[in-house]
Amino acid sequence: MSKLGQAKRIIFLKTADGQLFEVDEPVAMEFEIVKSFFDENEDAADDTVVPLPNVSAEPLAGIIEFCKAHVEFRANGAAGKDEVKKFNAEYIKEKSNEQLKELILAANYLNIKEMLDFLTETIANRLKNKSVEYVRAFFGIENDFTPQEEEAVRKEYEWAFEGVDED
C-alpha cells in the first residue's frame, strides 16, 4: 500500500488479448484477484505484470472506469448518495446485453463485489418478465433439455409462462 508522501503506485495488468493496462493501486486493489496476488507475493517487484488470462481488454477498460469512479465516491464520502446512482444509471445506459454479459463474466473472475452486485441486479432487471428464448439468446445458451424434460418443466410452472413480454 502506498503511504502518504510516496509516489502513487501503478499496477500493471495484462489481458488475455495481450494488452497492458496501467492502473492506480487503489483501483486495482478493488479486484480481489489482484489483491490476493500481491498478498501472496509480498516481495513482488513494483513492475510486476499481473496476468489476467480470462479477461479481455474491452470489459477490463469498462471495469476500470467503474471502479475508479467508485473509489473516488468513497474517498469523497459520496457512497450511497444520488450522485452514485446517477453515475451507475449512466454507466449501464449505453451498454448492450452482450457488453453487460462480458462485464459480469469479467467482474466475477476478478471478484469485485460491489460491481458484481450492481451488474447482477442490472441483468436481473433486463430478464424480468422475458421469455425463455430471450434469455437463451441473452446468454448465448443452448437448450440442453430433451423435449420430454422441457415439457415437464413447462407443465410444472404453467402459471409462470403467461403474459411474458414480447421479445
Partner: peptide
C-alpha cells in the same frame, strides 16, 4: 434478484 415467477420460468432456459 428477479421474482418467484421469473425464477420458475427461467428454469426452462437450460439445465
Amino acid at each position: 434478484c428477479t421474482t418467484p415467477r421469473d425464477a420458475c420460468r427461467l428454469s426452462l432456459v437450460s439445465s
